[in-house]
Amino acid sequence: MPLLEVRDLGVRYGSVAAVRGVSFTCDAGEIVTLVGPNGAGKTSILNAVAGALESARLTGDVRFDDVPILGDAPERIVHRGISLVPEGRRIFTTLTVGENLRLGATPHGGSAEDMVSVLERFPILAEFRRRPAGLLSGGQQQQLALARALLARPRVLLLDEPSLGLAPQVVGDLFRAIADLRDEGIGIVLVEQHARRAMKLASRCHVMGHGTFVQGLEGSDVAEVVGAYFGGDALP
């Protein structure tokens, strides 16, 4: 039984079907990526799973630990163990870094050990703890967004375009951090423009177009496609 199972998911905005008949699973300790052009429906899938869309717009079935969660309120879903790091990060810019982190711990009330371990992972955040989060650089904000999500002790992380707007060097660090999280046993659903890097990490990759999956790749196929489409040069 997979940790997260999405079956035949559909999302409608008015008369427009943004997502149709999408199914995939994500297990603990694996990365599943969704790639595809803008407007293909990737963000809608993550929002639907995280509970950020009205239930009236949704069809299909999403199960977490075999419990149906589709249409639940977002605060309930995060309490269950699924955290979304949304597109654009949505840091609370008027709150301090520390306050942002404290909010991340909302589902469990926040333990000191959690905070320490997160700050060890992202030391720059400890340094800027009292600063308004709006003053952080893009890369630092992305670290904060990730740290904030981790404090909820997620078992599945939904990452929406985490590398968007970041400098290439920072992107490398970010992907290493994502790989670390996978190795620690978190299931990750990753939506990325940097398709090549994302696919390198992924055990499964779904290519989207017009609201549905047009191609699915698994295991060694992913590496093969990466090689075929993007050339064989090794990545950092």
Partner: peptide, 24 residues
């Protein structure tokens, strides 16, 4: 206070606050 920080967060971005577990 925690509830105060939640209030400020909800004022800035209600949806994101909910995504972090703040009960609306």
């Amino acid at each position: 206070t925690t509830v105060g920080i939640q209030l400020r967060a909800a004022s800035e971005d209600f949806g994101m606050a909910r995504l972090l577990g703040v009960r609306s």
